[in-house]
Amino acid sequence: MVAQELVRSLEEKALRLRELIVDDLIGTEKVGHLGGSCSSAEIVAALYFHKMKHDPASPHAPDRDRFLLSKGHAALVQYAALALAGYFSTSELKTVKSLGSILQGHPDMTKTPGVEANTGSLGQGLSIANGMALGLKLDHSSRKVYVILGDGELNEGQIWEAAMAAARFKLDNVVAILDRNRLQATGPIADRFDIGPVAPKWAAFGWHVIEIDGHDVAAVVEALDEADAVKGQPTIIVANTVKGKGVSFAENNPAFHNGAMTAEQYAVAMKDLQGLRH
């Protein structure tokens, strides 16, 4: 049972992430990956503001948990979390994708404090996580690697190479979270490249599978805790989510995979998020 106080606090963080995405990172001037960023908000909030051991003042401290955004196009939600955690000022968020900004279109460890690897060419983050996990085990570290995957990303063959490898090497320090928002860039996965049931595939590959509502922070926290107890195999949390969650016109709308908001839409989005405040 997750404490109500923690649930309320993480819900507030997730809402704040969405506000930063809509207001600072996209606004009315920029194009941005609103949909996939908002579908990950509760997962990212639970990791950065509860589960992970990390220190914004010392981003390279060896004794830290690692976070990888394999679906790198959702960088906005990670940037919001990093700023909110204190890796850099929230005033940086408005510079995203500007020439010279520390915030690139996809995560870039050479430019952004707190980003652990360059991701965004889809399908590679899980392999990177495996490599980190092997390195941590060689160093006898008990820290974990958390990696968020997209469900469109499961089209990439390398994901399944990495799925095999994580089980083969018994990487119980890898926790993948599948942000299963059921849309890919050009439309519903069901109409594009449907790969059928997802959870049984991961189970067949040797993973411990937990399926949850990815917007229920208590469920996210419980699943992350459950992963701690799993030994000898990697864990994947299949988080069922809604693309664009929290912004009425963007929910389940492929146009906001990577879109711009009109002034009217921006006002609606801000009002939607305001309405989520208790």
């Binding site: 392999s127 490599g131 980190m132 390195g135 941590l136 063959g157 390398q158 095999m164």
Partner: peptide, 15 residues
């Protein structure tokens, strides 16, 4: 599985 090998090597380098 050379692709996975390369990205795994990247992760090892990052530790």
């Amino acid at each position: 599985a050379e692709q996975n090998m390369a990205s795994t090597a990247a992760g090892l380098a990052l530790t």
